[in-house]
Design a protein around this nucleic acid. Structure first.
Lengths: 330, 330
DNA sequence: GAAATGCGTGAAACCGGTTGCAACACGGCG
DNA sequence: CGCCGTGTTGCAACCGGTTTCACGCATTTC
């Protein structure tokens, strides 16, 4: 079927070893042999079988890309960048969708079966021992966009969520909103907790309360805001733990006849592409997603190349993106 | 490092063959041997190495999932479903992002290197000979959500885009819009051409003209609609070849002071999740994405299991989803 | 009771590569 | 001329599995 090492060796009139060495960087081959092999390989259209070589080298160049956020459009941007960055690094993303409850264990087995070189976990709401399980299996793991309290010894790349909470509270207060509240994502997400902590800290007496949604989804933001408008607590401005939630909340607020940003202010988090669309124009806190992805891939590469080392935590700063859902600073 | 077949064999006191057969369905093993092997495997935590077995079986259970639509949120829904469907079928998605020009060839080599069992191409704007290249390499290929004119012999699962064009024109005319136009996606996309063909056919004398955008993106829809409002052709209603484009167009129309759906009607295509958000409420034509994905995966499974067969084309019907960007039928 | 049938088993070859090792060629040196 | 070091090469073992094959054994059949 496919062209093998053997075929190339036969055609070039050399041994298998010679061919193998031609395609191994840093191996000792004479210029003459290399030329012959390369010519034969080109003529036959030979491509080394990564999987076969992985048997002896122990490297598959496969990286598990694990997530359970397949409904938040923000993650498409994340996947886009991850796949591109991995491809540039010569690594291949094996995508794992943790949609259902039982998927976690099975995925772990699966990634082991394919002997992936490393795992990137992109999510803030995974079962807490999931990341740890990889780590325990001896696989390099980097957790991006969130973290597990139960896996303090894994690499982590993320924004500083407490600082994001600070920035949010300061921003809302600066704009002259009196009572300010927090409308977070799922309660169990580490990011939600951290953002709330930072926000409440800085809001002080102006803190009007917090509510969590069931998911990072428009409907969740809309319904929770509806309930909030009906039952309270009331606030003049809300910091939402995610842009999609913020957009849902916006929709509910306008439906109820309130004006944004005059009556109510809304501040999102992420700066997903849609936040910039003119008919949404969400003021939001931007995650430096390019840097997060680049750092994550760099860490995975380093772990693969250099073996185990003490875990690294990298917290990146956020910035405010001014649009139209918050009053101008007075 | 990892537990191997050999380890299990030693512990169970049997040969490698016996262990291998225990994990091969339909192989001949006595109940007693099977029990012993299973116990040993469980005790050791053994999982067969798929990659090693792929050497002899020729099956990796890896499926290339190739796309270049990583900026259209609609595709996150598609990836979500594909990954879930593949996982349920015991297959693993190796994600390939064709963002850059040179990626196509390299990806082809790459997928061969990993000896994937099959390839799913999810896009309508790929270089036309890309799909054909897979086919020529002897790999099962299914093209979903579009097709290549140069690869008439590959499996195809898609909506009937000409019929979608018919439906669009009929719908707009029924709602009493006089002059109707088409605002399509990228001109080179097969889907754009087919939708236009169907639309123009049925619009007849009411056809006001067509314009293509540079990408499936909000900004493209917005900018093209701005230009259209400025330079014409003028139309009372537009059929947009994609929801994101439609949403961009909506934004431009409202910015220009026109009312939707009174002055101008907008009809999208896809029914992505955001189209249903109350603050967007886009009337659109729904692609039966669940069926497309299910059929695609079923075809890949069949191709892998049964080998080459004549190519299959499956065209699924679309339905109209009523929301708020088109007048009610009179 | 002997021969035919069948299943279950292990040894060994093989899948497509990599790599340790020993053999070898070559040039430079004393 | 002999010795040595360097650089190149092929052989063979190995990675972790699968599969062919022949054989042993128990069961069935005449």
């Amino acid at each position: 079927m496919a062209v093998t090492l053997q075929d190339v060796a036969a055609r070039a009139g050399v041994s298998k070893s010679a061919v193998s060495r031609t395609f191994t960087v840093g191996a000792s081959v004479s210029a003459r042999t290399r030329a012959r092999v390369e010519e034969a390989a080109a003529a036959l259209g030979y491509h080394p079988n990564v999987l076969a070589s992985s048997l002896t080298t122990g490297r598959t160049k496969l990286v598990g890309l694990v997530s359970n956020n397949f409904s938040n459009p923000y993650f498409l941007e994340i996947f886009d960048r991850f796949t591109q960055a991995l491809q540039s690094a010569g690594l291949r993303p094996l995508l794992v969708n943790l949609a259902h409850a039982g998927d976690a264990e099975r995925s772990l087995d699966m990634l082991r079966q394919y002997s992936v070189d490393g795992v990137i976990v992109a999510s803030s709401t995974l079962p807490p021992d999931f990341t740890a399980a990889f780590r325990q299996a001896g696989l390099p793991v980097v957790h991006a966009f969130g973290w597990s309290r139960n896996a303090p010894d894994t690499d982590l790349v993320s924004i500083d969520n407490v600082a994001a909470g600070h920035l949010a509270a300061e921003t809302l207060l600066t704009r002259g909103y009196g009572r300010i509240g927090f409308l977070g994502g799922p309660e169990e997400a580490s990011t939600t907790q951290d953002r709330l902590t930072g926000f409440r800290d800085r809001a002080g007496a102006a803190f009007a309360g917090a509510r969590c949604t069931s998911a990072y989804a428009f409907a969740a933001g809309r319904d929770t805001m509806r309930a909030l408008l009906h039952d309270g607590p009331v606030a003049e401005a809300w910091f939402c733990g995610d842009d999609v939630i913020a957009i849902g909340a916006l929709s509910a607020i306008r439906d109820a006849g309130h004006r944004v940003p005059g009556d109510v202010g809304i501040l999102g988090l992420n700066d997903m592409e849609m936040a910039g669309w003119e008919n949404i124009a969400l003021t939001t806190i931007r995650q430096p997603i390019a840097e997060i992805v680049a750092d994550t891939v760099a860490l995975i590469e380093a772990s693969i190349a250099e073996g185990p080392r003490p875990p690294v935590t990298r917290m990146l700063p956020c910035t405010l993106v001014e649009r139209a859902t918050l009053r101008e600073p007075s």
